[in-house]
Amino acid sequence: MDIELMLKVYPFFLEAAWVTILLSVLTAILGLICGTLGAAARLSRFAVLRFLGAAYVSVFRGTPALIQLFILYFGGPQIGIQLDAFEAGVIGLGINAGAYMTETIRGAIIAIDKGQREAARTLGLSSWQATYKVILPQAARLMVRPLGVNLNMLIKATALVAAIAVVELTYTAQRYIGSTYKPFEMFLLAGILYMIIIYVTGRGVAWLDRKVQIT
């Protein structure tokens, strides 16, 4: 193992790790927004919205994220969408993650007992109030852990943007594998950084999960 080489190149990996973190954060925010809208649509009173929500989930979970990225980044200009690679990465991965989060959020909401809504309505709350004051606070507790799983997947999925040449961890590893012919060393550098990011995020989610549980 070429430790000397690893010490020489690791600052570039650290820099790339920040790009991966930034990508992950932005993607997670967009994913949560899309997921919330998707879940609202899937649980809507209106059949059209329910259909659109279901179609969103089915199409975006049913095709590879890599292809979705390529459609957006390479195909976008043909339909008037010009994005740089980083923007395309965030938007593409965010919409993709949103489809998975839609199911997570919807699952948590429908897991709340029906009697809760009925009781809230009986007590004189409007349908809107019942949703926001009774159902969602309870559902939010159930969501933390599965959303954590989505987040874990999303962080690893940010590696895909290497294919559209965003200089994040995987792209950096790939480039250095190409120039140094030391795949194991480069994998180790990038892998350790990924595992640190995932470990810290996992701990954060576990902490949040403990925090929101009623003891």
């Binding site: 690893k156 999925a157 940010t158 590696a159 895909l160 290497a162 294919a163 961890l169 995987t170 590893a173 790939q174 594998i177 012919y181 030391k182 795949p183 194991f184 994998f187 990038a190 892998g191 990924y194 595992m195 995932i198 470990y199």
Partner: peptide, 22 residues
């Protein structure tokens, strides 16, 4: 196992493809 679950598949593919050659 833990390494495989904690790193992206794309990175693993690079390792296996170029690592085997190495």
């Amino acid at each position: 196992e833990w390494v495989f679950m904690g790193t992206p598949l794309l990175l693993q593919l690079f390792l296996i493809y170029f690592g085997l050659v190495q």
